[in-house]
Design a binder for these strands. Structure first.
Lengths: 189, 189
DNA sequence: ACCTGAACACCGTTCAAGT
DNA sequence: ACCTGAACACCGTTCAAGT
């Protein structure tokens, strides 16, 4: 964990940046979001705490970067699923198997610019992750433009609701997942 | 904010306990959850940081206590709503108007006992808050036992999904709330 | 009986310095 | 060019002491 890292050679400072991102992802796969500190992530990378600031303006900027990647991963997994039902289960499985990643994606966002908007790249990443759902709904529905988008959102919100509630209150026993997804989809499409 | 508080008279130590709870609620009405620290809440109450430990085992125990109260408040508001549609809007309004409170209620729970269960009182509070929804669904449906409970949960998860997503990604423009609630209810009951 | 102050081990972040 | 170490203002929490 704390084995020190050889200094990057000239022109390869980007390596540390990538190493920090990878370490963050790894940490969030086994630990809670609040165990992610400047000091844990730099120690895991084998550098001093202050090294983080060579490549990120602050801790939030690093989290922000991994958030984009988690969005992309989620999108990729959804796209790989076969059919709407499988996609819904894939979504819930991602949240269940990577609670730390899912928590980061939907963590309350404090990074807004002067006008109160978030960085454009996260917005993009968010829409991109949702895209497979929209397409799958469109496919099973035969494309009814606005209707398709609304239904995809409604499906998404129901999946997110279950995923997040399950993470926040694991003691609350929800009805069977298969049944939940089946009922959801049969009502929506 | 930092005006100091007169020491409680003999036998009235409970007053400070209550004052801390009230200060916490007030803070969470205007600030984010991570602005709630031992030092901000005790300062707002007019006592030294260490005074908190006279009445709570730690900061989490205080948050735990207000969480129960927020659950109760949410339940009361839902019960006061007239009909399922109004109840759904009440739910979303609570989350929108008191983001700090809603965030506490659904904050990822780290307080589990030896066997991994949460304190029984929070479980109770959670179920109690949900009760009005179950009853309203039962009323409009004519009571079909298990079916009623499942539908209430499904409605709840859809509302929570929208509320939490809206808090986490306010930049994501969701379809109109009225329309969302109408579609949701007409599909479910 | 009720509360404070000093102290400790953390935390994020800055900035001067080392290689 | 790349990274570290000392320092600062925070944080939660303990424990001896004050009223």
């Amino acid at each position: 964990m704390t084995t020190s890292r050889p200094r990057s050679r000239r022109g390869s400072g980007e390596e540390l940046r990538e190493a920090l991102i990878v370490a963050t992802s790894a940490l969030l796969d086994t630990h809670q979001l609040d165990d992610l500190t400047v000091r844990t992530v730099t120690a895991a990378t084998g550098v001093s705490p202050t090294a983080l600031y060579l490549h990120f303006s602050d801790l939030d900027a690093l989290v922000h970067e991994v958030k984009k990647r988690f969005f992309a991963t989620l999108g990729d997994r959804l796209r790989a699923a076969n059919g709407l039902r499988a996609m819904a289960h894939t979504y819930l499985a991602y949240a269940r198997d990577h609670p730390g990643h899912y928590a980061v994606i939907f963590h309350i966002d404090k990074r807004t610019d002067a006008v109160g908007n978030p960085p454009e790249d996260v917005v993009q990443a968010g829409f991109a992750a949702l895209q497979p759902l929209v397409e799958a709904v469109g496919a099973t529905l035969g494309d009814r433009s606005q209707e398709t988008f609304d239904i995809a959102i409604e499906l998404w919100l129901s999946l997110h609701g279950r995923a997040q509630l399950n993470a926040a209150m694991p003691w609350f026993e929800l009805p069977d997942e298969d049944r939940y997804v089946d009922r959801l989809i049969s009502r929506l499409v």
